[in-house]
Amino acid sequence: MSQYPPAMAEVVDELASITDRYERAEMLIEVADRFDTVKIPPEIATKPYDEAHRVPACESEAFVWAQPQADGTLRYYFDVLNPQGLSAMAMAVVLGESLNGQPTDLAMRIPSELVFDLFGKEISMGKGAGLMGILNMVQSYAKRHKAGMSLE
């Protein structure tokens, strides 16, 4: 059984069915084009952002926030300061759309293979490290929320 939340599994499965690399790229670009839907709103944070929210090792300068919701779930927000950071934006959209409003346990169960299932195994180490960093930061927020710790 997939360890991915349903919405994430849908994206992964669709990408897996595409063998042409240009088509895969087009699909990921379409995902990245929805970045505004998960972008941090100014009422929550403005630049310069608190460095505590910066994703370590991400050369696209990604930032992640998590806001507790009334139903006990988390809503994740992101920003990617490098306008060329399309892969980071796509990663943020997949995470936000799949996890917002869902039980936090779902985030903690996502395997790190997500990066390769989305972007392919041939991505460079630098890019892979940054994308995994985004996932790790989301999972860290989920764990801290479950443990009743501060998310600031």
């Binding site: 790229a25 087009e26 670009i29 990245a32 950071g85 892969s87 460079s124 630098g126 890019k127």
Partner: peptide, 9 residues
């Protein structure tokens, strides 16, 4: 590029 999404974008 390093990022395979950039050229198609």
């Amino acid at each position: 590029n390093e990022d395979p999404l950039l050229y198609p974008s």
